[in-house]
Amino acid sequence: MFLRWLMSAFVAFILLLMTGTLVPVNRDFRQTPDGIQVFVVSNGVHSDLVLPVREPRTATNWLQKLDNAAVVTKFERYEYVGFGWGNEGFYLGSYGGQYPGLGNTLRAALPSPTLLHVDFYKNAPRLGERVVPLLVSEVQYRQLAAFVEQSWQPDSAGRPILLTAAGYTPDDFFVRARGCYHILRTCNDWTNQGLRTSGLRAALKAPFAASVLYQARRAAKKPPGRLPTN
């Protein structure tokens, strides 16, 4: 009897999560004509926010914010940078294309330490099924940038704490992050929260990358809003 109840509760929980995917937040969001282009990018499991390395209208420079001489020298000619938040064990257990072991998978369901994955792009991400471009206003971009910056764990000087000099490729690395990862707070929830708190269309609940992409695609298909008139 208890096992049957447990299975029913689990199915109800999954249905609740999936329903959250279909319920939009900020449903009135419209892209900004001539706005700042950002991207929502996924590898099918995980999702990232990809932003311009330098954004002059908002005076945002991610190389300055990262404040690491080696990073500045290495990536000064790159145009975009991606940010993704997630479970430390999963990230570090994925080196060499490996899938994290059962232990890391089970521990990820409980509150556990997190990292911010920083991935540089020489050019804008190539458009495809798992890449959604959005044009956002200066205000929305500032909010999105603030969300990302508040997600890393700063040192005593306010700089992000670099964990590794290289990640999965020569173009990425990890920094210490704030917050705990658990079954109700996944990497895709983080991406979704960044969109939602910045006024962009997002899902009510986004445990999966498909949840994030679904609402981002809906936002991208809507015609841009009108420019303000004097």
Rank of each mutant, 00 (worst) to 15 (best):
L63P: 06
G86F: 00
A108H: 04
V53I: 14
G199P: 08
W5S: 05
T197I: 01
F120N: 01
G179V: 06
G158I: 00
A177K: 03
R201S: 08
R217G: 02
L162V: 15
L66G: 00
G84C: 06
R4I: 06
T60N: 11
T32N: 04
Y214C: 07
A209N: 02
Q98I: 11
L200E: 14
I183E: 04
P113F: 02
V71I: 15
N192Q: 02
A220G: 07
P207R: 07
A12R: 05
P56I: 04
L92H: 13
N188F: 08
F208Y: 12
R217M: 07
Q150C: 00
A146F: 06
V131D: 03
K205L: 14
P133L: 14
W62I: 03
F90S: 12
A145Y: 01
R178L: 12
M7L: 15
S8C: 10
R218E: 14
G97E: 09
P111N: 10
Q150N: 09
A203D: 06
F13L: 15
G89W: 08
A109W: 05
W62M: 02
M7I: 11
S47L: 08
P170L: 06
A209K: 00
T58G: 03
A59Y: 05
F75H: 01
R130N: 15
V40C: 01
K222Q: 15
G225R: 03
L204R: 07
G128Q: 13
R217S: 03
R4P: 02
K221P: 02
D172T: 11
G101A: 10
F173T: 10
A146T: 12
S211L: 04
D67H: 12
S8T: 11
L63R: 07
G179Q: 08
A59E: 10
P223H: 00
R185P: 11
A108I: 05
L116V: 10
T169D: 10
G44C: 07
M18G: 14
P125V: 03
Q64E: 15
T105F: 06
P228S: 08
L102T: 14
W190A: 00
V136G: 00
A157C: 06
N123D: 14
L135T: 10
